[in-house]
Design a protein around this nucleic acid. Structure first.
Length: 616
RNA sequence: GCCAAUGUAGCUCAGCCUGGCUAGAGCAUCUGCCUUGUAAGCAGAAGGGCGGGGGUCCAAAUCCCCCCAUUGGCUCCA
């Protein structure tokens, strides 16, 4: 939309004749306005209601500045060469006319050739031109995002004994990572000037890479990475279903003008991707919340059914994070996130459920290969909630067994009253949230989700939002960063055995032992172990080196001795030593270490000689 | 989104400041030879509009401008 704005002593115009068929039906009389701001307007292709709204905000702002209260909207096609259709233009002009209440607004007729006389004032602000486009709207910023910066937070450290300490006075000497997190969050202190090690590792281990043909923050996952993701996804899903989550699937895009969407959107501080399709403005989901809420709204629920727990593993959730913020697998624009909502009948039930999910989350995060020393907890709540529910908060902190970062808000700004996360703190001092849970007191009503209580009255549930692991990609980031940290501190970098793309590599000393190797690999694979064969005609030293650089845990070398004996000579990367074990003993050891974890077969050719190499 | 740095063969990187032979190396790949015992056996070959697009110049990987991507900082992070 293009606007030429003139502050006038007067304007006089007379409609002469209809210019287009769809011209407005009017009485073609001359009109005169005095002490008026005339806005000549060309509505362009792609303009929409938001543009109209924005235009009126800008116009009324400048009217305030020049102290003028009378506005004439004057359709003026000649300001642009890419005009919108007359019907759209008229529609938007009419919208503009009715948008602002405390102004005297008039509109010149649309579609008529008009003669006019005008006297423009001579002050510096009298003339002004504006171009307003919809494009900036593509990354619609929610009110929450805009207002977030205004929230006032109070930072503390809570120790397992339930005591609150001023964050500035707390002795962090035995809690390095917590100090990093606290500074990271409260003072926003950053101290890095190198690139994160996991980026190199994700390429070297052929897990994932950037995809320049997509938008930034959208990764490609190679067979190894896809396998790891599948396993983690399976594991988290199994755990949530064990807890009682009902797995569902919901759409990845939504109409941004759906009433419950619009207001939720404005309560969620994130930037969206949006898509125009057949006149609808769709946005890509940034979480599974609305899909599940819209679904739950159509459930008929009694208090006896609650809590109802819905779960979805979103592939993907989309957030249009600022480009400068995207880093490897740490922060993406498209990511896979498990999201489980529990609909609870009251705060008592919500708190009870909240505890269960806290346990679920610690179990999941530990099962993924991260222990208590790898993450720091942050807990955030409103002052009111804290005063009424001290014991719950103290209990969580006691459970985690070490001091946690506390953020307290004077007033409730978000839709939740309590939220905690586990943050992975990497070797470069960056903190990233993994698991999280929230107590939401707002969306039950917003989405009109109802259950019938003991007194036969409809009620809105309290909703818990839990991601027991955080984004799957971020879990891989954390595992790789942990491995990198191990490496710099002199330990061998490893992946958890159940996530290793290859668990066992079999290497023949000479090609004549290949057949034996294949038979052996068959046998090991039958017990659900991922084993492969290095059938390239390379020296043993070279083959071992390659297996080591791929972080393969067990390396079996097959030669004369092994073919004639009963035991295998197995190099264990964890200890670096060679052991003699039977097949059964090896399989048993692997099974023991990967028990309760999902299994998937090798996601690559078994023979190394037939594999493409992924060099990134 | 803003500021800065980086972008050369599949990968890791020289070369750029001070413009000029046919743009180099190691690894990987291919072809031979070797027949291997716990972290790299030997030799040869092939492989590159120097991130993309403009410009300056007799001449641009090299100097200038714009764009893209990555990384760092800022901002932001349910």
């Amino acid at each position: 939309m293009r606007i030429l704005q003139l502050h006038c002593d007067y304007i006089e115009f007379t409609p002469v004749k209809r210019e287009i068929k769809s011209a407005e039906e009017i009485d073609p009389q001359s009109k005169r306005f005095e002490e008026v701001l005339v806005a000549f307007i060309a509505v362009e292709e792609g303009d929409n209601s938001d543009v109209a709204k924005k235009a009126m905000v800008e116009i009324s702002d400048s009217m305030k500045k020049i102290g003028c209260n009378k506005l004439l909207l004057y359709p003026y096609a000649h300001l642009s060469s890419k005009l919108a259709s007359p019907s759209t233009a008229l529609l938007l002009l009419k919208e503009m006319e009715t948008q602002v209440k405390n102004l005297e607004i008039y509109r010149a007729p649309f579609g008529w050739t008009k003669s006019y006389k005008i006297q423009v004032k001579g002050h510096p602000l009298a003339e002004n031109s504006k171009t307003i486009t919809a494009s900036e709207d593509k990354e619609s910023t929610s009110d929450a995002l805009k207002a977030e910066s205004k929230i006032q937070s109070f930072w503390h450290i809570m120790t397992p004994d339930g005591k609150m300490h001023d964050v500035g006075k707390f002795d962090f000497s035995r809690h390095d990572n917590l100090e990093v997190l606290a500074k990271y969050e409260s003072v926003k202190q950053r101290s890095v000037n190198e690139s994160p090690p996991h980026v190199k590792l994700m390429k070297k281990l052929a897990i994932a890479d950037y995809e320049p043909a997509s938008d930034a923050g959208n990764m490609r996952f190679f067979p190894n990475g896809r396998l790891m993701k599948s396993l983690i996804e399976r594991y988290v899903t199994d755990k949530v279903m064990e807890y009682g989550g009902l797995e569902v699937e919901t759409p990845i895009m939504y109409d941004s003008h759906h009433p419950s969407m619009e207001s939720y959107f404005n309560r969620f501080p994130a930037r969206q991707y949006s898509i125009n399709s057949e006149g609808k403005q769709l946005f890509l989901r940034f979480a599974a919340c609305f899909g599940q809420f819209l679904m739950a709204k159509d459930f008929q629920m009694s208090y006896k059914n609650l809590p109802v727990k819905l779960y979805e593993l979103t592939r993907y959730s989309f957030r249009r994070e600022q480009s400068g913020e995207l880093v490897g697998l740490r922060r993406l624009r498209a990511f896979t996130m498990p999201d489980c909502h529990a609909f609870c009948k009251d705060m008592t039930q919500a708190k009870e459920e909240f505890r269960k999910r806290f346990d679920l989350s610690t179990e999941v995060i530990n099962g993924l290969g991260l222990d208590e020393s790898d993450y720091e907890m942050a807990i955030r709540f409103t002052e009111d909630f804290y005063n009424e529910n001290k014991s719950l908060i103290e209990e969580l902190v006691k459970n985690i067994g070490k001091p946690v970062l506390v953020e307290m808000w004077k007033e409730r700004f978000f839709y939740f009253v309590l939220k905690w996360e586990f943050n992975y703190v990497d070797g470069l001092g960056k903190a990233s949230a993994l698991s999280t849970d929230q107590i939401d007191v707002e969306n039950g009503e917003r989405y009109n989700i109802e259950f019938i209580d003991e007194n036969n009255k409809p009620q809105n549930p309290i909703i818990l939002h839990n991601s027991p692991s955080g984004a799957i990609e971020r879990v891989i980031y954390a595992l790789l960063e942990k491995a990198a940290k191990d490496q710099t501190e002199g330990r061998k970098p490893m992946l958890p055995l159940w996530l290793s793309p290859t668990q066992v590599r079999v290497i023949p000393v000479k090609p004549e032992f290949l057949e034996y190797c294949n038979t052996l690999t068959d046998e090991i694979s039958r017990s659900d172990v991922r084993a492969d064969v290095d059938d390239r005609n390379e020296s043993v030293g070279k083959s071992i080196r390659d297996a080591e650089t791929e972080w393969i845990r067990y390396i079996i070398v097959i030669g004369e001795k092994e073919v004639s004996a009963n035991t295998l000579s197995i190099r264990d990367r964890k200890t670096g030593s060679v052991r003699n074990l039977t097949i059964d003993e090896l399989v048993k050891e692997i099974k023991e270490e990967t028990k309760d974890k999902p299994f998937m077969r090798l996601n690559t050719n078994r023979s190394l000689s037939t594999r493409p190499q992924i060099m990134v």
